[in-house]
């Protein structure tokens, strides 16, 4: 009896040790980055990176948010880009996935097979030809160049949605169709609500992926007008290679919105991402 108790205490201790180590290791870099961003450049030069800011200063953040090529435009551009891509991808992917799952039309299976095959195309393979195509079309350094390649749906989302849609009983849909509901109403009133978990997951994944995307925005935009937040962060690193307080303010601004999103939607993320097998 006593031995069991001791063993359990030991087991708990070991578990807490692992969890504590994981939490500390995960948070340490963020802590360093935030602390550096709150330190004055003078203090950093004198005392190095491991001192608490004394006193904490928001100087770096105000520099970033007030200067002409600062972070205000990139944040606005990124928000707009993510919003447009998100709406487009979800709407068009739901439409296509529904058709693949529940409608019969000639060429359907072949087309779906092609979609699945394109899952294997890595972004770096298409970046050069897409640059050539969109430059040729005169779209480089426009908002449309940022969103166009992604806004018409993603094979990945379609694949996952179709798997989920197929598990819906078709009697239910037939019943509704007999009621005279149009396809769009059927989708909005039945298919979407029934598949809410997977759609929420897709929304989160899409937001994370495109908020963080870097290579494409870097190649297809030029100058401050359509610069996204990742491109602005990278430019900051190039420009102020020795002014780490400013650079860390930039990375903090780039990461903070998604960290907040993560904390708000923690349940959905921790449950659905692991459960559905995404990315």
């Amino acid at each position: 009896m006593k031995k069991n108790l001791a063993r359990r205490a030991l087991g708990h201790g070991a578990t807490y040790l692992v969890l504590l180590a994981a939490a500390l290791l995960t948070l340490a870099p963020f802590t360093v980055s935030v602390l550096t961003s709150l330190t004055s450049p003078r203090q950093l030069a004198q005392q190095g990176p491991l001192h608490l800011p004394a006193p904490p200063t928001l100087e770096s953040f105000s520099t970033l948010l007030s200067s002409v090529d600062g972070f205000v435009t990139p944040v606005a551009v990124t928000v707009q880009m993510v919003a447009v891509i998100l709406v487009g991808q979800i709407v068009f992917s739901v439409l296509a996935a529904y058709a693949f799952a529940h409608l019969r039309f000639p060429g359907r299976d072949l087309l779906f097979w092609v979609f699945v095959a394109t899952l294997m195309v890595p972004q770096v393979v298409v970046v050069v030809p897409l640059y050539l195509m969109l430059s040729e079309a005169g779209l480089r350094n426009t908002f449309w160049a940022l969103v166009l390649p992604f806004v018409l749906g993603s094979p990945y989302a379609i694949f996952l949605l179709r798997e989920n849609f197929r598990q819906m009983p078709s009697e239910l849909m037939d019943a509704m169709r007999i009621d005279g509901a149009g396809t769009l109403r059927l989708l909005w009133n039945l298919v979407v609500p029934l598949n809410r978990p997977i759609i929420v997951t897709l929304v989160l994944i899409t937001v994370v992926t495109h908020w963080n995307s870097f290579m494409w925005p870097m190649v297809i935009t030029s100058g401050p007008e359509w610069r996204t937040i990742t491109v602005a962060t990278s430019a900051l690193q190039s420009q102020y290679s020795s002014n780490w307080t400013l650079v860390m303010a930039g990375t903090t601004l780039a990461m903070l919105p998604l960290m907040l999103l993560m904390i708000v939607f923690q349940k959905q993320i921790t449950r659905s991402v692991g459960g559905t097998g995404l990315r």
């Binding site: 995960t26 948070l27 870099p29 962060t233 690193q237 990375t251 990461m255 999103l261 993320i269």
Partner: peptide, 16 residues
Amino acid sequence: IVVIPWVCAPLALGVV
């Protein structure tokens, strides 16, 4: 906590 790095931009994490 442990999932936080995954939602952050790899570029920004690289800079940090």
